[in-house]
């Protein structure tokens, strides 16, 4: 039982101090690595990664002192990133950002400027002197708007179809099954390319094509969950009391299907952020000069990446961090739901 006794907190130096020191050193290294032009790229990356690792370790220690041993630093890191990004996106028009799309107004700006805190371009500029921080934030606007609306559309449509198929079964289920299987049988990229050639590449159409990708997964999850609950005895009890189909679907089944479907939706957002970037990279999504992460990465084509790696690394880092954060948060949400269902 001794290992369960509360840990004594008289260790020296106190964990609070170690945590804070680690975090500060890490942050300094991260900024130094990312912004020092004198270093070669691999050295920058190594210093930045070391800084990130130290930052996380420090934050983890701080968090554990603060919130107890259950503190999950990666989750909070992800949540903080999403919050920060969300705020920045919403406030972008009022932030003191440099020009992001009008090439005519940046004739005087340096081209391919490397990231640095001095000068007006903290994340550097591209071939036309456009500011990468501004482009990344405005790019995030379209990337996230597209994937969020696509996921919302896919969740509502796919979830509804799945619930209906799972509840009525028989011929309804068979038709839905054939439709989802045929949708799954078409390689997603080919489907998107085919759609892109037919539809105009603006925001609504890209969102619509991507929504099509999420529907089969949503249908399957909603259908399986509905079927699992439809055989539960509380549904029989509701029917015995005279409840109709609509009431059973909405009042008995929907609350139980909603949580697993929503946690899949969060994970799906990250998949669609990547998918949208791939589309734009191929030139099939939103067209430049309107920025998205995908077409920003595409600017690094040819020899540009070798000479000016930050052109790709900056939007790449935004993409990576966002996708990672959505996955971490989604996993946590699902884990929470699972443990609840075990208790029931």
């Amino acid at each position: 039982m001794s290992d369960l006794a509360p840990r004594t907190r008289t260790a020296f130096p106190p964990p609070l101090l170690i945590g804070a020191a680690l975090a500060v050193v890490g942050l300094v290294l991260l900024v130094f690595g990312a912004t020092t032009p004198q270093l070669v790229t691999p050295a920058k990356a190594a210093v930045a990664l070391l800084g990130l690792g130290l930052l996380l370790a420090g934050a983890s220690r701080l968090g554990k002192v603060w919130a107890g041993p259950g503190f999950d630093v990666v989750f909070w890191f992800g949540a903080a990133w999403l919050l920060l990004l969300g705020l920045a996106i919403l406030c972008a028009p009022w932030l003191p950002l440099a020009e992001d799309r009008d090439v005519a107004s940046t004739v005087a700006e340096p081209v391919f400027a490397t990231p640095t805190f001095t000068g007006g371009h903290p994340l550097g500029t591209n071939a036309f002197g456009l500011d990468l921080l501004a482009r990344s934030l405005y790019g995030a606007r379209s990337s996230l708007l597209i994937s969020l609306s696509a996921v919302a559309l896919g969740t509502v449509v796919g979830g509804a179809i799945g619930m209906v198929a799972g509840y009525f079964q028989k011929s309804v289920d068979r038709v839905v099954g054939i439709a989802t299987n045929s949708l799954l049988a078409v390689p997603p990229l080919i489907l998107l390319i085919a759609l892109a050639t037919v539809l105009q590449p603006h925001l609504r159409n890209v969102a619509f094509s991507l929504a099509l990708l999420t529907i089969p997964g949503m249908v399957r999850l909603a259908r399986a969950t509905t079927m699992a609950y439809a055989n539960r005895e509380f549904v029989v009890a509701a029917r015995a009391m005279g409840a109709g189909r609509t009431r059973i679907l909405l009042r008995e089944l929907l609350p139980n299907v909603l949580l697993p479907v929503l946690s899949l939706a969060v994970v799906m957002i990250s998949v669609l952020v990547v998918a949208e970037a791939s589309l734009s990279f191929l030139g099939l999504g939103i067209q430049p000069p309107e920025p998205t992460w995908g077409n920003m990465i595409a600017e690094g084509e040819g020899r540009v990446f070798e000479e000016h790696p930050h052109i790709v690394l900056v939007p790449g880092a935004f993409l990576f961090l966002t996708v990672f954060a959505f996955n971490v948060v989604g996993e946590k949400a699902r884990g929470r739901w699972d443990s609840r269902s075990v208790k029931l």
């Binding site: 029989v236 009890a237 009391m241 609350p255």
Partner: peptide
């Protein structure tokens, strides 16, 4: 049938599963 069925009620074996967990 739904109206007539309400005049007859059923009690089932597993009382926990017979109640909607979210209500």
């Amino acid at each position: 049938l739904r109206r007539a069925r309400a005049r007859m009620q059923i009690i089932m074996q597993d009382p926990v599963s017979a109640l909607n967990p979210r209500r």
